[in-house]
Design a protein around this nucleic acid. Structure first.
Lengths: 348, 348
DNA sequence: TTGAAAGCGCTAACAC
DNA sequence: GTGTTAGCGCTTTCAA
């Protein structure tokens, strides 16, 4: 059993109230006494009891804000957030969610301010776009000590609590590795990229190229097109690419939202193309089961949402910053058979 | 805010103690008063506060027993167990762990009894071998209402709380799917199976065969050998197999512990063989990075350990049985690039 | 600057 | 049968 405030108070020869003040930096404790208390707490590895704390602070419970993007991929992030919500609701901590349509900086700025000033949240989880003003605002808040976690999308500012998401560069490398495996390391590849102002998509392409360049002399990346995460534009991009480069026999889609592009690929070439894609969405899932896509490199959006909220919760409850500012979720690869849902059952 | 015991007591004109007795069916309450209390509780939708409950019962805390196998794979299960332990320690619940060398029924029986009678645990998580006596003992305990969760390995008895582990049949199917992808659906395959009395390994082989049979007319499974999860025997098995069937150009190892077999494969044929294996262990990891193994089908041992303990914890705290008796962890595929640890970093 | 004490919601031991 | 009371570990208010 861990040491309690009461025990520390005894050992230090002071009252519980004083220990509480010292431990939580509420001020009003003489430096000398504070030192003594902190030393004892440290020595015995004091960890506050979350339960007791939650019970005691039930009067003014904490609130976490979440600002995310409105689309099928982020729905999975939200699922994880909700899972975390259920776990922490017992502690009186609530989550206020806000979904934003598209990757719009203005709306994000508005949402941030609304969260802070209207909803008066105590912490923020956000999937920020790479926008100068958004970054500046987040940096400012973080500098004031406001806890912020970036989920799934990352932007640079030093005082953030953490980034929870995947390693996009590595996911690009993984896609290239898969491409090597399924093509016998010989292919003419076309890449269909996602949205320009989403940093992750760019990094995926870079990761992909790094492997092709260094490890697969017989794989050429013939063309790279941008789909702008739009149905029609991705259809057109793929159609144009395949017409212009008839030698292309493999495709890599760096975004899970390019249903149009996949449709074009199927229409023009059918299953002769070897296709690798990213992210499990209803679209990629369908084409994987269908056999058009051979493999998908997935992040774990559900886990990301869950971890982001948990991290903020731990911070609010115990004041503990995560061990690393980069909390990377594992990459997982899916193929048809690993996606199938039916089980033959095991022991009863 | 939900209604509390105190408030119910006021409304019913009785003491908190009486309400507690009535609500928890501890007896010693007159039927008439009990009715009144229950009605009020119902009317106002009383829900007990978990935190307060846990705090109050901290005096006689619960204890969960864990019986697992002593090897590198199960170390990962233990990691997850420890993660869960940390989370539930606030609730005063502890975990008593016991690792057993090998798949020995006798030792498992002893451990079970020791846990129940000496350690007096309130619940048990176990990775049971497929042994008649072990199953009988577990079934007996479960029938008495003792909560039992099977972790990673499953055996049949009806009253278990749950099995937490992967779908072995499906993992076999996934390995076959991978084999199809990396061989262009044309190969002569040898299978090196694991331990006979581990049900999962058998199911993996069956899953593998089911895909080959139905989907890959040009893949033949030439031979199946047993490695008994032993270094030397697996070396010998592979050596014999490759000598006897020179046409074999692909291998599937259904166990992550067969380092000897992999060594033999490398010695005799080098990287010309296309190899698929199961489970991330230091051995499979090394050979994957090395290029001998092309892909690994992983379960999530860490998650399995975590979930098993969480499930028992929830049951002990709230009396809630899991929604399904089969809690299946997702399969993940690893290739060289997705295993690499270095990141090029993203936003700071 | 420090201490004392009253709760948060629940359980359990003991008294009536 | 039922009421009373003392905690569980922490926060917070009010005195000193």
């Amino acid at each position: 059993m861990a040491i309690t405030i009461k025990e520390i108070a005894q050992k230090a020869g002071v009252s519980r109230g004083t220990v509480d003040r010292a431990l939580n930096g509420r001020g009003g404790v003489s430096p000398e006494v504070e030192r003594r208390i902190l030393d004892i707490a440290n020595l015995y590895g004091y960890k506050p009891n979350k339960l007791a704390k939650a019970l005691a602070t039930k009067a003014n419970p904490s609130k976490i804000g979440l600002i995310s993007i409105e689309n099928i991929f982020f729905d999975q992030v939200i699922e994880g957030v909700i899972r975390a919500e259920e776990e922490i609701s017992d502690f009186g901590v609530t989550v206020c969610r806000r979904m934003i349509r598209g990757y719009d900086a203005k709306s994000q700025l508005e949402a941030i301010n609304s969260m802070v000033y209207q909803e008066k949240v105590d912490a923020l989880a956000i999937s920020p776009v790479s926008d100068r003003q958004v970054i500046a605002r987040l940096a400012e808040l973080a500098a004031e000590g406001f806890p912020i976690v970036n989920v799934n999308m990352d932007v640079p500012f030093s005082k953030k609590l953490a980034y929870v998401g995947c390693d996009y560069f590595k996911s690009g490398r993984t896609a290239a590795g898969l491409m090597g495996l399924i093509t016998g390391e010989r292919a003419q590849v076309g890449i269909i990229s996602g949205c320009g102002n989403v940093m992750g998509h760019t990094q995926r392409v870079e990761g992909f190229m790094s492997v092709v360049k260094n490890e697969y002399p017989d794989i050429q990346v013939v063309d790279i097109a941008d789909s702008y995460d739009d149905e029609q534009r991705s259809y057109d991009a793929v159609e144009a690419m395949l017409r212009q480069h008839p030698q292309i026999d493999a495709l890599c889609f760096t975004t899970g939202g390019a249903g149009g592009g996949l449709k074009a690929a199927e229409a023009l070439r059918g299953k002769r193309l070897r296709i690798v894609a990213f992210d499990q969405t209803p679209i990629t899932e369908r084409y994987l089961m269908d056999g058009l896509i051979k493999a998908i490199v997935c992040q774990q959006p559900n886990e990301q949402g869950y971890q982001a909220i948990r991290l903020l919760f731990e911070y609010l409850m115990e004041g503990e910053r995560p061990a690393s500012q980069q909390v990377l979720t594992e990459l997982t690869i899916k193929i048809k058979q690993s996606m199938e849902s039916e089980s033959r059952g095991g022991a009863r």
